[in-house]
Amino acid sequence: MKKTNYSREHLAYLKKLKKKRVTVILSRVLILAVVLGIWELLAQTKAIDPYITSSPSRVAKTIVSLYRDGSLFYHIGITLCETIVGFFIAVIVGYVIAIIFWASDTLHAIVEPYIVVLNSLPKIALGPLIIIWIGTGYEAIIFMTVLVAIILCIMNTFAGFAAVDPTKLTLMKAMGAGKPTTLLKLVIPASLPALMNTLKVAVGLAWIGSIMGEYIVSRAGLGHLINYGGQVMQLDLVMTSTFILCVLTGGMYAIIALMEKLVVKQF
């Protein structure tokens, strides 16, 4: 922002905007602090049973001890890898399938009902099949992640392709552009905002898929820790893993939101 001689009124307006932003940020931090504080206080005074509810300080201790025995980044790394690999497979394969649908109305019409059914099917129902077919390794979890995220990727990106301004399509046609040229010059760039939206939703679904997958089969990862912690009544472990998950999902979402901001700026 250049420094220019704004009117007093405008300066007051800018100040008001800034004040609002500061209020929002401070309030957010405050809410978190208050919730954590009350939780800690109740646990310290034994008003609630920390054995069942854990507490912020116990979560912190658990993180430190996980870090000391070297398993913190091991579990985080495993889940993060599964999620990211699954996410990229779902997004890329989904994108390619959406392009194929865009290129062929007939194929899309044929396949659509199957897509709709697959979309509404709870993927966890396929758990036993996945174990039998793919085994209990990372592949199974990645497969689950892809399964959970891909249908939405296909449907969202396709909807983005279909929403391209018909006038622009006519223009391309009038210039003599074939389908590949129209795709590259118009449809893909025009649907970038839709793709960014898809990524945002897909990242959430990928986490659901990977944690669900770890519940079913794994012997490592954050989902495994949560599951295991629940089974042996180590609620500190459950809370800690959940907390780490919150940080990771939030971080990944923030990265995509930032990417979106950069891309959509031109629209």
């Binding site: 006519t170 223009l171 118009l186 970038l192 031109q266």
Partner: peptide
């Protein structure tokens, strides 16, 4: 060659 000009400008925003 033909050049086609449409009702709306259909400029590509990107």
């Amino acid at each position: 060659e033909f050049g086609y000009m449409l009702q709306r400008d259909a400029l590509f925003e990107w």
